[in-house]
Design a protein around this nucleic acid. Sequence first.
DNA 1: TGATTCACG
DNA 2: GACGTACGTGAATCAG
Length: 935
Amino acid sequence: MTTQFGKGCHLHLIDGSAFIFRAYHALPPLTRKSDGLPIGAVSGFCNMLQRYVEGNTGPDAPTHVAVIFDKGSHTFRNDLYDQYKANREAMPEDLRPQMPLTREATRAFNIACKEMEGFEADDIMATLAHQARDAGGRVTILSSDKDLMQLVGDGVEMLDPMKNKRIDRDGVFEKFGVGPERVVDVQALAGDSVDNVPGAPGIGIKTAALLINEYGDLESLLDRAGEIKQPKRRQTLIEKRDQIELSKKLVQLDCNMTLDFTLDDLEVKDPVAEDLVGFLSQMEFRTLTKRVSDQLGVEAPAINDTPQSGGAAEAAEEPADLPFDADAYEWVKDAEALQTWIDAAYRRGYVAVDTETTGLDEMRVDLVGICLSSNAGQACYVPLGHKAGADDLFGTDQLAEGQMPMDQALAVLKPLLEDESILKIGQNMKYDAKIFARYGIEVAPIDDTMLISYALHAGMHGHGMDALSERYLNHTPIPIKTLLGSGKSAITFDRVPIEDAVKYAAEDADITLRLWQKLKPQLHQQQVTTVYETLERPLVHVLKDMEMTGIQVDRDVLSRMSNAFAQKMAGYEAELYELAGHEFNVQSPAQVGKILFEEMELEGGKKTKTGQWSTPADVLEDLAAEHTFARRVLDYRQLQKLKSTYTDALQDHIYPDTGRVHTSYLQSGANTGRMASNDPNLQNIPVRSEEGRRIREAFVAGEGKVLLSLDYSQIELRILAEMAGIDALKQAFKDGHDIHAMTASEMFDVPMSEMTPEIRRQAKAINFGVIYGISAFGLARNLHIPRGEAQDFITRYFERFPGIRTYMEETKAFAKEHLYVQTLFGRKIHMPEINAKGPRAGFAQRAAINAPIQGTAADVIRRAMIRMPAAIAGLPAKMLLQVHDELIFEVDEAAADQVVERAREVMEGAAAPALHMSVPLVVDAGRGANWAEAH
DNA sequence: TGATTCACG
DNA sequence: GACGTACGTGAATCAG
């Protein structure tokens, strides 16, 4: 029996996507016990549906209900505007497979489940709401999405299911400043950064509402735009008319869709016990199955959630405090044995992976063995490259017994390691991914315990496996030294007897798996899932590719410079012996100090805490004007630095077969979110001195290519202006003014037209000081002025920019209360020493002020790097290096303009859509045959 | 191995 | 009232 929808009927429309995302983000990443299927969002979704059904009693209960979903990603809005929702983040890996299950769940509850290709859920809801209202019924939309507010009125209400708050005409007015029928007008003007609706630049919801209320509606406003008094606003509305009209079409919901069902199909039905309980038990939701069974008066079925398997070896997962047993680890000798471990990985849906190699240089070393573990306490080692006869002085290429042929093992493992549905877990996965890539395997998707720890606990402790194992598993891993020895007599892993290697190597996989089980759920609890998912995990492959590409370095340039430096240094050395009256080690600060402050009896010497004379550059610089000796020591040191660290050392890092240098980025290197580069460090190649800068000429583009350098201009000061909300600074950046000159002008009451380089220099030092957590002492030392004067500068600065002081005080207070600070993207930097006493307190406080600024800048460029591969896909261009606020590319000369354009767009827009910056990010670009020219 | 110095953002 | 400081890194070298 069906009822014709009409007067007295009450339709509920549930925004399915909103339910799913709410469920996903509210819950830890649960997996189905029997097979590891990610199931957290489905679980939350079902709980929400169940609570909804339970709450539907009394006179206000719905007579009709449907859950509406989005389908596909291309809608008619994309045809109108190709950038619509263009900067949406990709769906998390572990959510995608849950989407079809939420549809199944809806049907299991016996609730109508509707979606349509080419339309958003909002359009379906709009159409249904109109139909229901026209038929004389009532409608309640269960969502808090502001895009749906245009539907409110005349029997249509919204209900925010989380806050249980009704939104009627008054609620809409509160949000938009206009009634529901004018909401689209306001949205068309204000735009929407989340959906990438452009709107009118510079006009937000408040201004939009003001204008609409004054002129009645959008069309009248646009027709009469010339009457607007504010020149900028008037100009925007006239010039951007097309864009605004397009925006309106984008936000306007389609309430006249042709549907393949009618309202009558949405009638509320009781759930069928068998279907619902069947679904819930299949998902292995124990509590919910029991609850629903009780309610429906059926017996709850037994849930068998032990992992499906053949034998006892696959017992249910033990808690992490299962003891470690090295004897339980298996030596895999053939394909058959390996297959059982691969099967286990498929049953679980995840597997911890670790590689053993002949060294640490992942571009050069050979693969020796692979470890796998999908269950705590159980792990295997697949030896592949162990040599026989470790005692043979001449070495031997004879392989040890009991190993699979490497080709065969890799062929069997490749489908698993590349399977999109199987999560590969590692500690520092970039290392293993690079090794595998060299053997033709692209490992994906991945999780990394090092990066999970970093997202959770940056600043609290290190993220190496040994430290994590001791801290979270209470277990000290076998030190690698016990196998390899140390110093000169150290051997490589391929010389380790396999029976010993099994115990060590398999343990690493076991530990990694247990750490993952322990730490991964904490991401949600600590609210850093987004940090991990958007700033850490996707970066691994980007860095891997950059590192493997490397940058071409011209050995001859370096070698010539080394020779020139050596000659000059020999001259300085002789001169220094002459001046001192005897020979000494110029490279020894202690000996230099002794000559200056004892033999020459100069004033101003300080001793270090070890009692040695201290001779840093700034001290020598003060003496240099009067004493040639100090000047020559400085000269010598500069060349020594350039030669030993750069022109000599870099040559050793050039790969003979490619002529390129491959650095390694440490993603968890700096507590702030910055990365560190090592082996070699390519983030500190000289640039400040003329002589040093020439080293960059050795970094060259290949034949027919150029190097591009794109760097953020003043990104940290822009972020400070944004975070502290300093209008004067923000405006200066918007207007493209010289920020240091402007600061100087404000502080010293000097008009911009009378600005001198000296005054500007002082203001620049203060601006930098502010980012570092300014102190009078530090500023005084930097500017070579008395402390009192530096203090006066700071006082005056804070008078002109009181918001900066407020920001600093608030940041410190936050840190003291929470023991961490945060970037604008939610990255946490822990500050365990913030409440320390004594000098350490000062350090911690300054670090607390600096970390959110430096960290936010680091987050921004990470976001840009993650989007970059897609942005330059298809172009003959490669991203090579990152230097904190700069990216280096190598591109075909002909494509340079296009790459600059795309890369700049990505970098300047990197904060959106997660963050709407009111200060523009600006990127400068340069190009040339080498890095010196490009910079 | 720790301390010192200095290269970068 | 003195303390001893700019923030974040990596690498080479000396000295014990």
